[in-house]
């Protein structure tokens, strides 16, 4: 494993002991099966304990795990060879932090859009750590329009720390690129399913997050600002990220309760990176189950429901009545 968390250390130690016992048993031809199964059981129990009581700050770490399956990992597992990547925004450049194309989920051909992170430093530098520039959002907008033109649904994988804050990004209009993506996505006349698979980082995530259904992996996060950024601004101390993480309520369970997402997809114990196929299957099942009924809706009704979905988000109160949800 390329990345270990402090809270995983007891599990990793036991796993090492387990593999030591296994090799000892094989090499020495000794029957250690009872010890081995006892440790294996203990590991599962410990994983269950630890991963069922993660703090928000720990969930954020799992969501950002280097080995966490990325957009392309899921596309490969679900679409296999059917995926055709499309590049470039036709205006300035291609953005490797955003993946676009078409592929087939079972019998259904769809457009596919997703932020793309790397699994190591080299890949992450190439992918800009999954932080798109304006050209990334203009590319995905272009491909959404292709989907609309050819009446194909759109599947979106969300996994970004946020849109990139840099000189070039500002020169080329990061704000406008995000705003227009949100606005036009809200009017795409084809069904859109969004899956938040890792980090849903602020406007950079929302830019491709206007779905008819929005799903979230159990240990994914979705937040208006990173815990570090929030701590630096409100606590004036980046080291308070743990407090900020708790305050922001960005876990899947929080967002389901808030009515922001439609459902949570459970992850294998220890996180999605421990069994990407398990998660991919769950995503595939949702797509097979939800798309046909959404595709059967008249486009006007689809748009009306999508508008109402986001229209209803927010909490405020008026003097004459007590409160609005």
């Amino acid at each position: 494993m390329s990345q270990e968390f402090e809270f995983e250390k007891p599990i990793i130690e036991l796993e090492k002991r387990l593999s030591d016992l296994r090799s000892l048993s094989e090499e020495g031809n000794i029957d250690l099966s009872r010890e081995i199964s006892a440790i294996a059981e203990k590991i599962e129990a410990m994983k269950s304990d630890i991963f069922h009581s993660l703090e928000p700050w720990q969930v954020a770490q799992v969501a950002r795990h280097l080995d966490r399956p990325s957009t392309l990992d899921y596309v490969k597992l679900l679409c296999g060879d059917s995926f055709v990547e499309l590049k470039g925004d036709r205006l300035f450049a291609d953005d490797p932090a955003m993946i676009c194309g078409f592929g087939r989920f079972g019998s259904i051909a769809t457009a596919i859009i997703g932020h793309q992170k790397g699994h190591d430093t080299e890949e992450n530098i190439y992918r800009n750590f999954g932080m798109p520039h304006p050209e990334g959002y203009r590319k995905s907008r272009r491909v959404m329009h292709l989907a609309e033109k050819f009446r194909k649904p759109i599947i979106v994988f969300i996994d970004t720390p946020g849109a990139f804050p840099g000189i070039g990004a500002e020169e080329r209009g990061q704000s406008e690129a995000i705003a227009r993506s949100i606005m036009e996505m809200s009017r795409m006349r084809v069904p859109i399913l969004c899956f938040i698979i890792g980090e849903g980082g602020s406007g950079g995530a929302l830019a491709v997050g206007i779905g008819d259904r929005v799903y979230m992996l159990e240990h994914a996060i979705y937040s208006v600002i990173s815990a570090e950024g929030c701590a630096a601004i409100l606590w004036k101390d980046g080291a308070k990220a743990r407090d900020a993480a708790a305050a922001l309520k960005f876990r899947s369970t929080d967002l389901l309760e808030a009515g922001i997402i439609d459902a949570i997809l459970p992850e294998p114990l220890g996180g999605a990176h421990r069994n990407a196929e398990f998660v991919a299957n769950a995503i595939g099942d949702i797509i097979q189950k939800e798309l046909p009924s959404l595709m059967a809706l008249p486009a006007d009704l689809l748009l009306k429901k999508r508008y109402e979905k986001f229209r209803a988000m927010g909490k405020f109160k008026l003097e004459q009545d007590s409160e609005h949800a």
Binding site: A179, A258, R311
Partner: peptide
């Protein structure tokens, strides 16, 4: 939190 992010969508 997330409610403020969603005002961008709204």
């Amino acid at each position: 939190g997330i409610y403020s992010l969603m005002q961008m969508a709204k």
